[in-house]
Design a protein around this nucleic acid. Structure first.
Lengths: 162, 162
DNA sequence: CACAACTAAGTTGTGCACAACTCAATAGGG
DNA sequence: CCCTATTGAGTTGTGCACAACTTAGTTGTG
């Protein structure tokens, strides 16, 4: 396959105004897709009494068991300002326990209660529905994940070295 | 090139538990990418005094001129509950004007002030930096947009017919 | 014309995301 | 050993997203 000329234009030759329009399209489509996902989950998770973000936390706990708030935050890219109140709500709902670590009193370990662990059974049917609702093939989903992962990594680095 | 067998497995043969893991990665990677984007823009837009969402609204106004809150909401997939306070803040910052339409007193038309229109010049340099920070080629960006657009559409429909 | 149905904005309440901060516990260097 | 720097959670304040609701204005129908 030869290089398609129109598919890899010299970026520096594209005028600012054109890029502003493109930017509109890109950040908008990402933002919109993320919120559309949120909307789907909001309905799917209503029965379980979970929000989208709470579901993400539960997924980590179901997969990887008890861990500190810090570890959860690293996996989910969230800080304590977001996690602390969220975990409090999960605790209030009886799904998790929070306990100060004995080895390091600064650390709080989050663990599933029996009810929290049991909720996993009811969550098992959700992903198939989501996958169907996306209308994407498995290949497309995997390709999407790959690009999104690289995007997140690159943007994170760009922010780090300010 | 022949079809790669592992790339299109029979989805119904994949166990629920496996999908719960995959699912984690899909919704999570989108969520994470969206927030990483937001983080980049937060810094890039600090000088302009805009948030990410305010920037999206300004992009629409720069491109398409004065329009009702409803029209803005349709373009951005946002409702008045989100837009009303956001527009109030933009008005407070002196970037937009809000005026009741004379033809239809229910409707409020949002228009750029001179200052708001002028801000576009300072925004012109942003997209090039973002594009560079993503580390993606223009083809990948366009492909991403395409998939995200279909995703949003499909999820929206899935939610509509509940 | 009257009045019921609908529509456009705005308000209220809940939850998430994140910056900036506090506080207590720990680790490390002199 | 002390004491300074760092770390882990949590709190506070701001803004976004959205459901549910209110209010005012418009449309359509009998």
């Amino acid at each position: 396959m030869t290089t398609a000329p129109s598919a890899s234009p010299d970026l520096s030759a594209v005028p600012d105004a054109e890029l502003l329009r493109l930017d509109h399209q890109v950040c908008f489509s990402l933002h919109a897709a993320s919120r559309a996902f949120g909307g789907y989950y909001r309905r799917a998770l209503k029965d379980l009494g979970l929000t989208y973000s709470q579901y993400l936390v539960m997924l980590v706990l179901w997969e990887q068991g008890p861990q500190s708030v810090k570890a959860l935050g690293e996996r989910l890219h969230l800080d304590s300002g977001t996690l602390s109140p969220l975990l409090k709500r999960l605790e209030g709902a009886g799904l998790v326990r929070r306990e100060r670590s004995r080895e390091d009193e600064r650390s709080v370990v989050v663990d599933l209660t029996g009810e929290g662990a049991g909720l996993r059974e009811r969550a098992l049917s959700i992903p198939r529905g989501v996958l169907a609702a996306t209308g994407l093939s498995l290949e497309e989903v995997l390709g999407l994940q790959d690009i999104l992962g690289r995007l997140t990594g690159a943007l994170g680095e760009a922010v780090d070295d300010d």
